[in-house]
Structure formats: structure tokens, C-alpha cells
């Protein structure tokens, strides 16, 4: 509940306004030659980093844009990107 998120359009806002969109896993893979395991990895399996991870958020009660932030999953606070 203490999370605040910096929306690229609306600025730093209350975390309640946003919806989580999962880890940043890159663009959708090509369907050709895609094994069920790889597909499952892409859609369902997560890295679950204990630390700073890049992830998607949607400003549901705001501008309606999807964007990524870095968040420290241990403190549940927005963080600077790690090198």
C-alpha cells in the first residue's frame, strides 16, 4: 500500500491507481517453431527476482498507458535501474 509509481505521463502517483502487468519479458515470440514449453515460459513462468526488477504497470485510474518501472520487490518501493 505504500507503493508509489512514477507514470511517464502523470508523474509520481499513489500505487492504488495502477494495475500490475507482470515482469518485463520482452516482445511476443514468433509462433513458428515455438515449443509448448517455451510458450509456457513466456506466458506463465516468472523470474521472481528478490531485488530490483523491471516490470509493466498500467495507469488504470489515470492516463491509461502501459509503461515499465523498476521496483525493489523486497522493500516494495520504486527503484533506480540497476546497471
Amino acid at each position: 500500500m505504500a507503493l508509489t509509481i512514477t507514470c511517464p505521463i502523470c508523474g509520481r502517483r499513489n500505487g492504488y491507481e495502477f494495475r500490475f502487468g507482470g515482469e518485463d519479458k520482452g516482445a511476443r515470440p514468433d509462433e513458428e517453431g515455438l515449443s509448448p514449453e517455451d510458450w509456457c515460459d513466456y506466458t506463465h513462468n516468472n523470474t521472481c527476482i528478490a531485488g530490483i526488477q523491471k516490470e509493466w504497470w498500467y495507469h488504470r485510474d489515470g492516463c491509461g498507458s502501459w509503461f515499465t518501472i523498476h521496483r525493489n520487490t523486497i522493500t516494495n518501493l520504486e527503484a533506480e535501474a540497476t546497471a
Binding site: 502487468g21 516482445a27 509493466w56 488504470r60 502501459w66
Partner: peptide, 9 residues
């Protein structure tokens, strides 16, 4: 939200 999510990349 759904359409924009799936177009996000």
C-alpha cells in the same frame, strides 16, 4: 487496457 497491453511492445 487489454488491447494496449498486447500492443505494448
Amino acid at each position: 487496457e487489454w488491447i494496449r497491453y498486447h500492443a505494448r511492445y
